[in-house]
Protein backbone atom coordinates (compact mmCIF):
# COMPACT_ATOMS: atom_id res chain seq x y z
CA UNK A 1 0.00 0.00 0.00
CA UNK A 2 1.12 3.55 -0.74
CA UNK A 3 2.51 4.91 2.53
CA UNK A 4 1.44 8.46 1.61
CA UNK A 5 -2.34 8.40 1.48
CA UNK A 6 -3.91 11.74 0.74
CA UNK A 7 -7.31 11.89 2.39
CA UNK A 8 -8.00 15.52 1.54
CA UNK A 9 -6.96 16.83 -1.89
CA UNK A 10 -5.80 20.34 -2.82
CA UNK A 11 -9.41 21.45 -3.44
CA UNK A 12 -10.42 20.38 0.08
CA UNK A 13 -12.38 17.39 -1.21
CA UNK A 14 -12.28 13.99 0.44
CA UNK A 15 -11.34 10.60 -1.09
CA UNK A 16 -14.85 10.07 -2.43
CA UNK A 17 -15.20 13.67 -3.59
CA UNK A 18 -17.30 14.92 -0.71
CA UNK A 19 -16.91 18.23 1.09
CA UNK A 20 -16.09 18.15 4.81
CA UNK A 21 -19.75 18.58 5.86
CA UNK A 22 -21.30 16.36 3.21
CA UNK A 23 -22.98 13.04 4.01
CA UNK A 24 -22.90 10.00 1.78
CA UNK A 25 -26.23 9.42 -0.01
CA UNK A 26 -28.62 7.68 2.39
CA UNK A 27 -31.52 5.45 1.42
CA UNK A 28 -33.83 3.66 3.88
CA UNK A 29 -36.43 1.03 3.08
CA UNK A 30 -39.02 -0.09 5.60
CA UNK A 31 -40.60 -3.53 6.03
CA UNK A 32 -38.20 -5.50 3.84
CA UNK A 33 -38.48 -8.75 5.83
CA UNK A 34 -41.73 -10.66 5.90
CA UNK A 35 -41.18 -12.78 9.00
CA UNK A 36 -39.94 -10.00 11.29
CA UNK A 37 -42.39 -7.80 13.20
CA UNK A 38 -40.48 -4.80 11.93
CA UNK A 39 -37.52 -4.36 9.60
CA UNK A 40 -35.49 -1.80 7.73
CA UNK A 41 -32.65 -1.65 5.23
CA UNK A 42 -30.25 1.26 5.19
CA UNK A 43 -27.82 2.01 2.39
CA UNK A 44 -25.39 4.77 3.28
CA UNK A 45 -22.76 5.11 0.60
CA UNK A 46 -21.35 1.60 0.32
CA UNK A 47 -22.44 0.60 3.82
CA UNK A 48 -25.47 -1.66 3.70
CA UNK A 49 -27.24 -2.85 6.86
CA UNK A 50 -30.36 -4.87 7.53
CA UNK A 51 -32.18 -4.46 10.86
CA UNK A 52 -34.94 -6.75 12.12
CA UNK A 53 -37.09 -6.48 15.22
CA UNK A 54 -38.99 -9.35 16.85
CA UNK A 55 -41.34 -8.89 19.74
CA UNK A 56 -42.43 -7.95 22.30
CA UNK A 57 -42.54 -11.68 22.87
CA UNK A 58 -42.05 -14.26 25.59
CA UNK A 59 -38.55 -14.26 26.92
CA UNK A 60 -36.49 -17.43 27.06
CA UNK A 61 -34.82 -18.27 29.40
CA UNK A 62 -37.59 -17.04 31.71
CA UNK A 63 -35.27 -15.94 34.53
CA UNK A 64 -33.96 -13.06 32.42
CA UNK A 65 -37.36 -11.37 32.43
CA UNK A 66 -37.92 -8.15 34.35
CA UNK A 67 -41.16 -7.86 36.35
CA UNK A 68 -41.68 -4.18 35.52
CA UNK A 69 -40.49 -3.81 31.94
CA UNK A 70 -39.41 -5.51 28.75
CA UNK A 71 -35.84 -6.60 28.15
CA UNK A 72 -34.13 -5.23 25.05
CA UNK A 73 -31.71 -7.61 23.40
CA UNK A 74 -29.48 -6.56 20.57
CA UNK A 75 -27.23 -8.47 18.21
CA UNK A 76 -24.85 -6.68 15.89
CA UNK A 77 -23.31 -9.04 13.40
CA UNK A 78 -21.18 -8.69 10.30
CA UNK A 79 -21.79 -11.05 7.44
CA UNK A 80 -18.67 -12.99 6.36
CA UNK A 81 -18.86 -11.27 2.96
CA UNK A 82 -19.28 -7.74 4.35
CA UNK A 83 -15.56 -6.93 4.34
CA UNK A 84 -12.70 -7.53 1.90
CA UNK A 85 -11.08 -10.43 3.78
CA UNK A 86 -13.66 -12.99 4.85
CA UNK A 87 -14.76 -12.34 8.41
CA UNK A 88 -15.35 -15.35 10.61
CA UNK A 89 -19.09 -15.57 11.25
CA UNK A 90 -18.49 -16.21 14.95
CA UNK A 91 -19.24 -13.12 17.05
CA UNK A 92 -15.99 -11.25 17.68
CA UNK A 93 -15.09 -9.12 20.66
CA UNK A 94 -15.81 -6.00 18.61
CA UNK A 95 -19.29 -7.24 17.64
CA UNK A 96 -20.16 -8.06 21.25
CA UNK A 97 -19.21 -4.54 22.24
CA UNK A 98 -21.14 -2.94 19.41
CA UNK A 99 -24.21 -5.01 20.33
CA UNK A 100 -24.07 -3.48 23.80
CA UNK A 101 -23.40 0.01 22.47
CA UNK A 102 -26.36 -0.16 20.05
CA UNK A 103 -28.61 -1.54 22.77
CA UNK A 104 -27.69 1.29 25.11
CA UNK A 105 -28.22 3.84 22.34
CA UNK A 106 -31.76 2.55 21.68
CA UNK A 107 -32.85 1.77 25.25
CA UNK A 108 -33.58 5.33 26.45
CA UNK A 109 -35.94 5.89 23.50
CA UNK A 110 -38.12 2.80 23.94
CA UNK A 111 -41.02 2.70 26.40
CA UNK A 112 -40.01 -0.69 27.77
CA UNK A 113 -42.34 -0.43 30.77
CA UNK A 114 -45.34 -0.94 28.47
CA UNK A 115 -44.56 -4.64 28.07
CA UNK A 116 -43.44 -6.11 31.41
CA UNK A 117 -41.99 -9.65 31.44
CA UNK A 118 -41.37 -9.74 27.69
CA UNK A 119 -38.36 -9.19 25.48
CA UNK A 120 -37.73 -7.23 22.31
CA UNK A 121 -35.04 -8.63 20.03
CA UNK A 122 -33.16 -6.39 17.63
CA UNK A 123 -30.89 -7.91 15.00
CA UNK A 124 -28.48 -5.69 13.12
CA UNK A 125 -26.85 -7.53 10.23
CA UNK A 126 -24.11 -5.75 8.31
CA UNK A 127 -24.23 -6.86 4.68
CA UNK A 128 -21.56 -4.50 3.42
CA UNK A 129 -19.24 -2.52 5.65
CA UNK A 130 -17.71 0.76 4.53
CA UNK A 131 -17.38 2.65 7.78
CA UNK A 132 -19.99 4.06 10.10
CA UNK A 133 -21.73 0.73 10.64
CA UNK A 134 -22.61 1.28 14.30
CA UNK A 135 -24.27 4.58 13.47
CA UNK A 136 -26.11 3.25 10.43
CA UNK A 137 -27.05 0.22 12.55
CA UNK A 138 -28.69 2.44 15.18
CA UNK A 139 -30.49 4.41 12.46
CA UNK A 140 -31.85 1.26 10.82
CA UNK A 141 -32.75 -0.41 14.12
CA UNK A 142 -34.84 2.52 15.29
CA UNK A 143 -36.74 2.57 11.98
CA UNK A 144 -37.34 -1.17 12.34
CA UNK A 145 -38.61 -0.62 15.89
CA UNK A 146 -41.04 2.03 14.66
CA UNK A 147 -42.13 -0.34 11.88
CA UNK A 148 -42.78 -3.03 14.50
CA UNK A 149 -45.15 -0.64 16.28
CA UNK A 150 -43.08 -0.51 19.46
CA UNK A 151 -43.82 2.65 21.43
CA UNK A 152 -40.86 5.04 21.55
CA UNK A 153 -40.28 8.55 22.86
CA UNK A 154 -38.33 9.42 19.74
CA UNK A 155 -36.47 7.86 16.87
CA UNK A 156 -32.72 7.45 17.32
CA UNK A 157 -30.34 8.51 14.55
CA UNK A 158 -26.68 7.70 14.33
CA UNK A 159 -23.99 9.67 12.52
CA UNK A 160 -20.24 9.87 12.94
CA UNK A 161 -17.80 12.73 12.68
CA UNK A 162 -14.03 12.69 12.85
CA UNK A 163 -10.72 14.19 11.83
CA UNK A 164 -8.82 13.20 8.72
CA UNK A 165 -5.65 14.96 7.53
CA UNK A 166 -6.24 17.58 10.19
CA UNK A 167 -9.72 18.49 8.96
CA UNK A 168 -12.89 17.83 10.97
CA UNK A 169 -15.32 15.95 8.71
CA UNK A 170 -18.68 14.20 8.98
CA UNK A 171 -19.75 10.63 8.11
CA UNK A 172 -16.42 8.87 7.68
CA UNK A 173 -16.03 6.09 5.15
CA UNK A 174 -13.83 3.05 5.75
CA UNK A 175 -10.56 4.52 4.39
CA UNK A 176 -11.00 7.73 6.35
CA UNK A 177 -11.76 5.70 9.46
CA UNK A 178 -8.66 3.52 9.03
CA UNK A 179 -6.13 6.15 7.97
CA UNK A 180 -7.69 9.22 9.56
CA UNK A 181 -6.92 10.45 13.05
CA UNK A 182 -10.17 10.53 14.99
CA UNK A 183 -13.64 8.95 14.87
CA UNK A 184 -16.58 10.31 16.93
CA UNK A 185 -19.77 8.27 16.55
CA UNK A 186 -22.92 9.94 17.90
CA UNK A 187 -26.49 8.70 18.34
CA UNK A 188 -29.05 11.42 18.75
CA UNK A 189 -32.78 11.82 19.42
CA UNK A 190 -33.67 14.72 17.15
CA UNK A 191 -36.99 15.83 18.66
CA UNK A 192 -35.76 15.67 22.24
CA UNK A 193 -32.24 16.89 21.51
CA UNK A 194 -30.66 14.10 23.57
CA UNK A 195 -27.48 12.17 22.84
CA UNK A 196 -27.65 8.46 23.62
CA UNK A 197 -24.28 7.37 22.24
CA UNK A 198 -21.01 9.25 22.20
CA UNK A 199 -17.65 7.65 21.66
CA UNK A 200 -14.30 9.04 20.64
CA UNK A 201 -11.36 7.11 19.35
CA UNK A 202 -8.34 9.41 18.98
CA UNK A 203 -7.49 12.81 20.40
CA UNK A 204 -9.21 16.11 19.62
CA UNK A 205 -8.80 19.56 21.11
CA UNK A 206 -11.84 21.04 22.84
CA UNK A 207 -12.68 23.23 19.82
CA UNK A 208 -12.28 20.37 17.36
CA UNK A 209 -14.44 18.16 19.52
CA UNK A 210 -17.23 20.71 19.64
CA UNK A 211 -17.00 21.17 15.89
CA UNK A 212 -17.11 17.41 15.33
CA UNK A 213 -20.08 16.98 17.68
CA UNK A 214 -22.03 19.73 15.95
CA UNK A 215 -21.25 18.28 12.53
CA UNK A 216 -22.42 14.84 13.70
CA UNK A 217 -25.65 16.25 15.14
CA UNK A 218 -26.32 18.17 11.91
CA UNK A 219 -25.73 14.91 10.04
CA UNK A 220 -28.17 13.12 12.37
CA UNK A 221 -30.83 15.73 11.64
CA UNK A 222 -30.37 15.23 7.90
CA UNK A 223 -30.60 11.43 8.22
CA UNK A 224 -33.67 11.84 10.45
CA UNK A 225 -35.51 13.43 7.52
CA UNK A 226 -34.70 10.32 5.46
CA UNK A 227 -36.00 8.06 8.26
CA UNK A 228 -39.18 10.08 8.51
CA UNK A 229 -39.79 10.04 4.76
CA UNK A 230 -39.15 6.28 4.57
CA UNK A 231 -41.65 5.49 7.35
CA UNK A 232 -44.30 7.81 5.99
CA UNK A 233 -43.92 6.49 2.47
CA UNK A 234 -44.67 2.98 3.63
CA UNK A 235 -47.80 3.79 5.61
CA UNK A 236 -49.41 6.71 3.85
CA UNK A 237 -52.63 5.03 2.79
CA UNK A 238 -54.23 8.12 1.34
CA UNK A 239 -51.26 8.29 -1.02
CA UNK A 240 -51.59 4.59 -1.74
CA UNK A 241 -55.30 4.87 -2.48
CA UNK A 242 -54.64 7.84 -4.75
CA UNK A 243 -52.01 5.86 -6.64
CA UNK A 244 -54.37 2.92 -7.04
CA UNK A 245 -57.17 5.18 -8.24
CA UNK A 246 -54.81 6.72 -10.82
CA UNK A 247 -53.82 3.26 -11.98
CA UNK A 248 -57.42 2.09 -12.43
CA UNK A 249 -58.23 5.27 -14.37
CA UNK A 250 -55.45 4.55 -16.80
Amino acid sequence: MDEEIKLIDENGLRVDGRRFDELRPVRIEVGVLKNADGSALIVQGRTKILAAVYGPREIHPKHLSKPDRAVLRCRYHMAPFSVEDRKSPAPSRRETELSKVIREALEPAILLEKFPRTCIDVFVEVLEADGGTRCAGVTAASVALADAGIPMKDLVVGCAAGKVDGVVVVDLCDIEDKYGEVDVPVAYMPNKGLISLLQMDGILTMEEFEKALNLAIDGCKKIYEVQKAALKRKYDFTEKLKREADKSEE
Binding site: A109, A146, D154, K192, D236
Partner: peptide, 8 residues
Protein backbone atom coordinates in the same frame (compact mmCIF):
# COMPACT_ATOMS: atom_id res chain seq x y z
CA UNK B 1 -52.50 12.91 9.99
CA UNK B 2 -49.80 10.29 9.83
CA UNK B 3 -47.19 10.62 12.58
CA UNK B 4 -44.05 8.71 13.54
CA UNK B 5 -42.63 8.10 17.03
CA UNK B 6 -41.27 11.29 18.58
CA UNK B 7 -43.08 13.60 16.20
CA UNK B 8 -44.67 16.66 17.80
Amino acid sequence: SLVIPGEI
